[in-house]
Write a protein that binds this DNA or RNA. Structure first.
Lengths: 181, 181
DNA sequence: ATCATCATATATCGGGTCGAGATATATCTG
DNA sequence: CAGATATATCTCGACCCGATATATGATGAT
């Protein structure tokens, strides 16, 4: 599942510029489970264009670079549908937070506390945005399903951190005492 | 947080060869929240070696490439501790499963069902392995904390899929009827 | 009032990383 | 006995991220 397919997916929800596609992966509904940067989006759009999977309509703007608005062609929609039928690659999670936390014994307890509190705050903010999303009613069934799964998972993660925070801090604060006894 | 730091982290749990480090990211406790391939591990170990952060002890083996066993130096432990104090990069999730599922309306309902069932089975297998892990008692507090968080999150994900599977399949099976009414 | 930062918008480049393969052999499985 | 799997190191091409360049308007800070 390379960036070209990801772009086709975004464009299937409506025409967009490269800049807007980037935003879909940064703030939009896809941001929680896929990313793409300018360095991959712009070359991908050029390739898709020359393959005839997307069409490009340049919209002149005052004193700014022309906005190139891309839209899916019938061939592009077909290509997307085919790609979606392929066996999905295994999920890949990269979490510095969990990596660092798994070495909590090397960190000052105050740092562990700060790390966890930051993360709880992040989950709570994300949940507010996801739950208060006005577009949720009009979203296609798959998108709503994925969104609600994200809410359930984030809520569990936040609650776990809230419920187990103090116990971990106590363990990394005074393990020597327990060993000495 | 590049592969060099990840290798230092693995080596802080005990000496290991490049092959064994790879396994730690493939099957071991790190596999759920970080990955690294041979193409990044071996260059990283060479760089760490020339920086004096790890030591290499070659163990001759009969009729096999010499096993190079790496271990952390004091300088390496210091470097790891410093790196762990840095602000963690934001998490990055890449899930083809969720991407594909968010376009469920383009897929045959039977395919949606198969996709979800596969994923439920994967979560259940992972949970069994994580819960039945004998090393859990001896793990440092941070690692145990992270492991239990993973269990909580995977359990929620599996339950969500089990509880909402049929509703999604119903929605993508006969949406036209609802629109027509 | 001026300076900095951010948002819009496209595009490239260096460096890091993945996945696949090359190489070599022993052991397990059918 | 053939084929798959596990051990073990290492390289290479393709791909992708993050930073940067370019250009300007709007917003915010001092």
């Amino acid at each position: 599942m390379d960036v070209k397919i990801l772009c086709l997916g975004v464009l299937s929800r409506g025409e967009a510029s490269g800049y807007e596609i980037k935003k879909a992966f940064e703030e939009g509904p896809f941001s929680h489970f896929h990313q793409a940067s300018f360095g991959s989006i712009y070359p991908a759009l050029n390739a898709l264009s020359s393959e005839g999977l997307v069409e490009c309509r340049a919209q002149a703007q005052e004193k700014r670079p022309d906005k190139k608005i891309y839209s899916l062609t019938a061939k592009g929609q077909q290509s997307l549908t085919n790609a979606l039928l392929a066996e999905p690659d295994h999920d890949r999670v990269r979490s510095d937070f969990l990596f660092i936390l798994s070495f909590a014994q090397f960190l000052p307890p105050a740092r562990v506390a700060a790390l966890i509190d930051q993360r709880i705050a992040w989950y709570r903010e994300s949940l507010e945005r996801m739950e208060g999303c006005a577009a949720a009613n009009t979203a296609p069934p798959g998108a709503a399903f994925v969104r609600n799964m994200g809410i359930a998972v984030y809520r569990t993660a936040a609650e776990y951190l809230e419920n187990n925070r103090d116990a971990l801090i106590a363990e990394v604060s005074a393990p020597e005492v327990l060993v000495a006894e």
